[in-house]
Design a protein around this nucleic acid. Structure first.
Lengths: 231, 231
DNA sequence: TCGCAAAGTTAGCTTAGACTAACCCACCCA
DNA sequence: TGGGTGGGTTAGTCTAAGCTAACTTTGCGA
């Protein structure tokens, strides 16, 4: 209605829903490109028209860029908000595992709810109590309070060539059973490994760790994200 | 509609708003009697008709007993839910002060938001890490996980008779300035004191602590809740 | 005891965010 | 090149929870 008034009011705080949408869009566009309506809908378990409606509101408030029938991308402002949520989530995951005895695999749901309620002050205090960790328990980088995030060149173990020396950096699943199994096998972020062999036709990858050799099926090898290292 | 269906579905989780209303009603009816619409409205900073609307819903779901134009009281079920919220709030306050460096007076707002997002498991872990404390930083009793709360016979310092030997148990204010001032004076939960003198006409109360004598104005003496002790 | 002020309630509107049903656009393939 | 088909959007409904305006009830005090 009135341009003066429009710009005068401070930006309202984001709702829980908006925070969730921004986070999803960040994850879906992380490798570049657009996030589609149906991908967002699947990730948040809502119906596609709910996403269309939210996309309209978010692009009106300048958090995303929406190309109808194509998809959406975050604006700089939207990206900043998404990274803040990701920082909250990952700091919470580290804090809950290190200080309150949560398992690597049970911490996600708790953090998912808390990330909408914590203040930045509390997150910074938790991070401080942990010595400002750079990675969460899954190995994913934690954005700084200033909104910087490490962009690592990662490749899935399933795509690594035989002979490569790697450090396992991220485990891209939240599934408890898979996480527990991988931890038993010694496959946690930080582990060094060498690719010994790969069977064809989506067969397993055989790797050598400090603790011995492991046979990793194709499905799991696709979620084990690694960084090349010099042996 | 259908009695079979009505009882078959599990009770839906309470919304944030409902949790806040139940907590307010608990506090307002703690000394017995009814909570009135306008008291609840003032405590939650909403308009009275919003309260009337919510009272209707809450009595339909069996959480409160509503006597129109008179007020409301919690049912057993409502009281259980309210005590759970109070446990969450108070455990959070202790945890944030003891483990994350929050001040006695700055912790309330953070706990107010977190109490709606934490799981009971997290609260129990926090309580365990603290050695299952019985009182929060204000001296208020923490309900157990089973929903039991200590009902203490407390009297305000302003009402205590001269010569009485007391233990300060609760400080019934959330105001930062007052809390800071009282802490400086050594007036925190657990402090032992003797009433030396009281000036008439709402004048100050003079008390003796281990650390010396203090003059406490009437306004503050009304929020300092004490328990009689044998000297 | 009667009237009026204060308190409580009802009626009706708003917003966020979900849903279903129905319609539209883009693109692949024959 | 022109259908289909599948994914995206629009239209319209629902619920929770807030609001204001208009009403009813209660109970105090003249």
């Amino acid at each position: 209605m009135n341009a003066m008034l429009r710009d005068a009011s401070p930006p309202p705080p984001l709702t829980r829903s908006v925070e969730d949408y921004l986070k999803s869009i960040y994850h879906l566009t992380n490798q570049g490109g657009f996030a589609t309506t149906s991908d967002i809908a699947a990730m948040l378990m809502v119906a596609p028209p709910s996403v269309s409606g939210m996309m309209k509101r978010l692009s009106e408030t300048g958090l995303i860029e929406h190309v109808p029938y194509r998809g959406v991308q975050l604006t700089a402002q939207g990206r900043r908000a998404a990274l803040q949520m990701i920082r909250r989530h990952r700091v919470l995951e580290v804090y809950l595992t290190h200080h309150l005895g949560y398992d690597w695999d049970g911490v996600h749901a708790e953090a998912e709810r808390l990330e909408h309620a914590v203040s930045d002050e509390l997150i910074d205090r938790m991070a401080g109590a942990l010595g400002n960790p750079r990675y969460d328990p899954h190995g994913e980088p934690i954005p700084t309070a200033a909104g910087e995030i490490e962009e690592a060149e990662l490749l899935a173990l399933a795509d690594a060539s035989v002979g490569a020396a790697l450090e396992l950096r991220e485990v891209r699943t939240q599934d408890s059973e898979r996480l527990r199994y991988l931890a038993e096998q010694g496959l946690v972020p930080g582990t060094r490994l060498t690719v010994l062999e790969r069977q064809p036709f989506h067969g397993p990858t055989i790797v050598r760790l400090a603790g011995g050799d492991r046979v990793v099926g194709h499905e799991l090898a696709r979620v084990l994200m690694c960084r090349a290292v010099t042996p």
